[in-house]
Write a protein that binds this DNA or RNA. Structure first.
Length: 402
DNA sequence: ATTCCACAGGAAACAGTGGTCC
DNA sequence: GGACCACTGTTTCCTGTGGAAT
């Protein structure tokens, strides 16, 4: 094996190089530190409203608001696990069930994930084929039979509200009324939402039961983020490896946006990884800047890669079409379809795709009225065509047209 | 003042998939 | 094996729109 072999060189460097990060787990937002010092008030409030469960009565339903990365989920989870610890010895059973409505894209999926965590098997609760009301009935039966007290945490409940308004099936209403159908055990709902206005989309009857208690998590200030980062850095990095200026920049970047602690922790983690790779002694401002850029690029590339074929074709059509009005993009898209030998979709569908892609921020649309030449929407790319081609180059069907 | 373009975008229907239940 | 269910991606049909051209 020659010394100049690039793989060997990297491996050697990694072995001899200094490791700045001593505990990677702590650099993930989902990790719950034992000693969360911040959000004391909110921890107290959440505990307060769940307290009745210790006295064997049903706690208040709870709505928790706050922007992403404000620690809502962490606090709720921490409080519930503490309560669980308390009652562990008694035969009074509390079960935490957590579902994220954004990850479960359908009502059915959400209920099934709920049932699975209660221990219902594939057989008792199949992943498809049943009527939603039937799924619901089976879950309630399970709670009844086992006499458990369930706390159902629905994260990003605003997405659920959207699903409900689309399908017209109000499982939230049924969930809030579930206790009337339960002889044994109980069901408490904790809804977590990023959107303070989401209640407007709900049935007023649901709001009155769901919103028995409401807690708002305010955004973190730059100083608070700095404090959080300091705590994590102390645990995760070797001493003196993060410069003060890097810490400040990290807090400023994340705090300036939305007070998002998640982003701050991500940032310092990626900066640490970059610094390690460069064999640096410590993490500097420069590393944080690089990390910030890298996170952005990765996000774009990942979202590009995840598009289905026809969306990719539409994006490529935008590159190929000069002026980029919907009509031009569509005819360019049709040519591309012919080249790769795929059936083309209708213009209506392509318009819809364009709006979806626009939401992700990769393209930018502007409505233009051209008088007798009609009205159209002109689209512009917000990222470089090279970046797109780079992301698409692994797709075999597209290789001929890139 | 009226017409008319080139779409935007909502609503509903439909096809297909993968399942249960009796 | 047929009735039924949820869900996704799509098509079909439709109404609405701002301003140049007439």
């Amino acid at each position: 094996m020659s010394v100049s072999d690039p793989i060997d060189r990297l491996l050697d460097a990694a072995e001899s190089g200094k490791s700045l990060i001593k505990n990677r787990d702590i650099l993930h937002f989902t990790y719950i530190p034992d000693n969360i010092q911040h959000r004391n008030l909110e921890q107290e409030q959440v505990t307060q409203s769940l307290l009745p469960i210790l006295k064997k009565s049903r706690p208040s339903n709870l709505l928790v608001y706050g922007k992403p990365g404000t620690g809502k989920t962490l606090v709720v989870r921490k409080v519930i696990s503490k309560i669980q610890e308390r009652v562990e010895k008694s035969n009074f059973r509390i079960r935490l069930v957590y579902s994220n409505s954004k990850e479960e894209t359908t009502l059915y999926g959400l209920l099934v994930s709920f049932g699975r965590q209660l221990g219902l098997t594939d057989k008792e609760l199949p992943t498809t084929g049943l009527a939603i009301s039937e799924v619901f009935k089976r879950i309630l039966n399970n709670i009844n039979e086992n006499k458990i007290n369930v706390i159902f945490v629905i994260d990003e409940i605003d997405y659920l509200a959207q699903l409900i308004s689309k399908t017209g099936k109000d499982i939230l209403y049924q969930l809030t009324r579930a206790n009337e159908r339960l002889n044994n055990g109980s069901l408490t709902l904790v809804g977590i939402s990023n959107d303070l206005t989401f209640k407007e989309k709900l049935d007023p009857r649901v709001i009155s039961t769901l919103g028995e208690e409401e807690i708002v998590f305010t955004n973190y200030s730059v100083d608070q983020i700095k404090k959080i980062l300091k705590e994590r850095i102390e645990e995760a990095f070797i001493p003196n490896s993060v410069s003060e200026s890097a810490l400040n920049l990290c807090s400023a970047l994340a705090g300036g946006e939305h007070g998002d602690a998640r982003r701050a922790i991500d940032l310092i983690r990626v900066a640490g990884e970059i610094a390690e790779r460069q064999q640096s002694e410590n993490i500097s401002e420069e590393h944080v800047r690089e990390a910030s850029q890298k996170i952005e690029e990765n996000k774009e590339e990942a979202s590009l890669k995840s598009y289905p074929l026809h969306e990719k074709l539409v994006i490529l059509a935008i590159i190929k079409a000069g002026g980029s009005s919907t009509g031009e993009i569509y005819s360019s898209y049709k040519t591309l379809c012919k080249t790769v030998g795929r059936d083309e979709l209708t213009q209506r569908r392509v318009t819809q795709m364009l709006s979806e892609i626009e939401l992700s921020g990769i393209i930018n649309g502007r409505l233009i009225n051209q008088g007798i030449h009609g009205r159209t929407k002109k689209y512009k790319l917000t990222i470089s065509p090279e970046m797109i081609k780079k992301a698409f180059k692994d797709d075999l069907t597209l290789q001929d047209i890139i």
